[in-house]
Design a protein around this nucleic acid. Sequence first.
DNA 1: CTGAAAGCGCTAACAA
DNA 2: TTGTTAGCGCTTTCAG
Lengths: 374, 374
Amino acid sequence: MVSIKDIAEKAGVSRGTVDRVLHGRGRVAPDTQKLILSLAEEMGYEPSAAGMALAAHKKKIRLGFIGFAAVNAPFFYPVLEAAKKKAKELEQYGVEVVFFTFDLDNRDTLKLFVQKLLKEWPDIQGWTVPGLDVLGMLKYFADASHDEAFGKKIDEIIQSRDASGNTISKPVVYYNIDEESTSYWNRIGFVGCDYEHSGRIACGLASKVTGGQGKVLIVTYDDGSVASSTLRIKGFREEMELRHPGMEIRGYVFAPDLQALIDVADMAEKEMDRHPDINAVYIANPGNYSICERLQKKASERGQRLCVITNDLVDERQKQMLRDEVITATICQEPERQGARSLQILYEAIAFGNYPEPAWEKTKLEILIGESLL
Amino acid sequence: MVSIKDIAEKAGVSRGTVDRVLHGRGRVAPDTQKLILSLAEEMGYEPSAAGMALAAHKKKIRLGFIGFAAVNAPFFYPVLEAAKKKAKELEQYGVEVVFFTFDLDNRDTLKLFVQKLLKEWPDIQGWTVPGLDVLGMLKYFADASHDEAFGKKIDEIIQSRDASGNTISKPVVYYNIDEESTSYWNRIGFVGCDYEHSGRIACGLASKVTGGQGKVLIVTYDDGSVASSTLRIKGFREEMELRHPGMEIRGYVFAPDLQALIDVADMAEKEMDRHPDINAVYIANPGNYSICERLQKKASERGQRLCVITNDLVDERQKQMLRDEVITATICQEPERQGARSLQILYEAIAFGNYPEPAWEKTKLEILIGESLL
DNA sequence: CTGAAAGCGCTAACAA
DNA sequence: TTGTTAGCGCTTTCAG
């Protein structure tokens, strides 16, 4: 192992100088610069991760993790758990992670969230957020609460000042959803799946299970405008047209407004009545999975089996449906990795100046069937 | 972050004493011991990973990775690549990894392997091996080559001496296959899949694709005694009997000896002729995948589609078959993780005394279909 | 049984 | 432009 000290000795300069050259900070005489660089090259210098990490302790790094309290967003439960585990790990590197969670359906949690944010933000050096327009939501919340003080603060939260007093945006890593439009902060990376690809895989599965003759009902638990499910459906359609000529889409059920969410299953049953040849259902985002049981029942009354494809693996009930073949397969997107890697990437950026390349770290799209579970 | 120094100051002792208590090395007065332990507890002491890693630099850790040169064992290519990547990473922690690879079909590589082993083994502090009886194979090789000197050395290779001069076995982490019978070395962990579970998943897939009515031909590219495929087949059968009453196994093709390997595809075709209702083939270990094309052709002559399940993802040709639906699905076992984690576990054991718990780190069993690839 | 001290590799503040 | 130095947290050796 060749260290900075070795190079310094061989070059007849101090360790500080070598450090400056290697990191391009501060001015160094061109000759020594060249000497040191070539020396580093030929001696095969590799920085010591342990040394760097130890030195980074002095930075007293604090990161903020913004996420959903998992009560009404079960998908985010494993994300949050994994983030907490990673936080414990980072603690061993002298890093503190502050968790800011809220539940969109619960104004109290939002209020607490805002209070905590107001208290803690100044010395948080970087953020991890679930690619939604969190700041926009907060602004909306501030308006709705007539909380002008908070409304004004929001922009500051993501900013810090550099040595010369200029404001600079703090680094932010997105997870789960990549929202490029929220460009008001310094997005350095994204950890999440390729939703279109997810839809293609769903189509492939449905095709194989139906012998290439799938007649498909598509169901989404949203108003049809949510990025994740529209992208999945796009992928599904494209794959179908490209490679599965025997398949057709028979219907598309979604909830035009929030109230209608409870009617989704009814609407889906009606579609099945209208199209008796439907033999596959694609549920493009997590929701109330009791729909699977209802549709499967309808199919069995006809003496058929239904291919049901879902996404993610959110609770024990869904797992049981997989085991019972009520759900044929579910496509997952490594939620644990989304929580863990987003924090890790942020840490490495702040501690060592390592910016992720490429910025999009794609999570695997895993196919799970009943037999995958234990 | 509370450090050993903080505890030492509060307890009015030196850092050395705290260290001794925390690691149970050396004798410490019972009172101070208690004091320090309670102090550590209440102050919430967590050891700093960076500090430990930096201090571990002094150990000059050298690890040995034993594996197959990937020429005739394509499964091991990604394993080896991942191990090399991990080795680069560990290099940044002051660790050197020495690679010892050989090709069982090539005596020259074996000879080189042995020479390197003889030269390097004394200061290698731990090993990573592909759970096969590598030492047994080497003994066999030594006998066959009349290389007595080497034959005698073999046992020493995995041993070192402790302070008092006693021989102790060096820690060894297995990957891919867990061979508990090779108990002559100190196996501290294993990274690999659950082969029985792999078979269960294969059965579940075949069932879903055949509407629960699969008539299955099982093919293995070995003499029927290799652990990985026999376990997979066991899992397949068990799952079938337990949960898929409509399925049946129609035939079982394997190669009684090495010569017969080239006849496997012929034998399989014959089985398909004998049982015209065969609609699924399970190829229980990697081999010559041209068999898939031949059997698929036979099926299409009958106007049928065949469900073909394979294991692992070894080359471009197999990938193309997946895309073309010649292979319906393949079940993978995270080869990259096997290479990377086995080294990481070994490092943490030697550097920090962290022994893996549980000893078996199970890799995921991933289902890949054509649409999973790009 | 305990303390003192050096050192692992790197960084950053300060002095020259 | 460069050198010096202290320090990040932990381990280990050497004295006592």
